[in-house]
Write a protein that binds this DNA or RNA. Structure first.
Lengths: 100, 100
DNA sequence: CCTTTGTTTCGTAATTCTACGAAAAACTAA
DNA sequence: TTAGTTTTTCGTAGAATTACGAAACAAAGG
């Protein structure tokens, strides 16, 4: 993997990171699901997905890593929601990218 | 990999495919580069990227597979350009996705 | 203290991605 | 025909992704 970031603009690097977060149907589903409600728990999504809970957990971790979602621990639950700040950043990047 | 597509909408599947195409800085660079001019050759891009030509070729293949670009053979050159139809589809999907 | 509950982490395995150089392909020009 | 140009395909290798079940965690309730 090329990590010589010098050749790419910050925007190009951010774009690719957000895109990577969205590069799996389960993760797009999660983002859709979360943006339809204020927040929800991992279990709510697990019921609607044909994957193991541990797998869902890994996808949630990926999305957290990208910044698009955040998880608030409230044991034994974890409340997930969209991270509006990064969502907005991604929105602007994709807007700018596609509208030309 | 989950290919039981029944659980995901067509839009979710398309989104994830377009996002996957954009999930690498080199490929974002290529899309940027192509959308700044009408068309160009593989060699034009190779000069500006710190990767082997064969690697660039693989990234171009990925982008072609996604539909975002197309290549017109004009030996010994291959003229690449944005595929406007699929670009527009991706644009609309990302718009709809992020604007809510 | 032990159990239950919701979730994550770990160990593991199969698949996919990224990358390179060497070789092949495809057409032109000499 | 031979040589030259541009680009892709192939063989290979290492890294990352996706997936699962078992085990671990962390707090609440009995």
């Amino acid at each position: 993997m090329i990590t010589e970031t010098a050749h790419f603009t910050t925007e190009q690097q951010k774009m690719s990171r957000y895109a990577k977060a969205m590069a799996h149907p389960v993760r797009v589903f999660i983002l859709d699901f979360l943006s339809e409600r204020t927040c929800c728990y991992s279990g709510d999504m697990a019921e609607e997905l044909p994957i193991a809970r541990s797998t869902l957990s890994e996808h949630l971790k990926e999305l957290k890593k990208s910044g698009l979602i955040q998880g608030e621990i409230n044991p034994p639950y974890i409340k997930y929601c969209i991270n509006r700040e990064h969502w907005e950043e991604a929105r602007e990047l994709f807007m700018k990218f596609y509208n030309r």
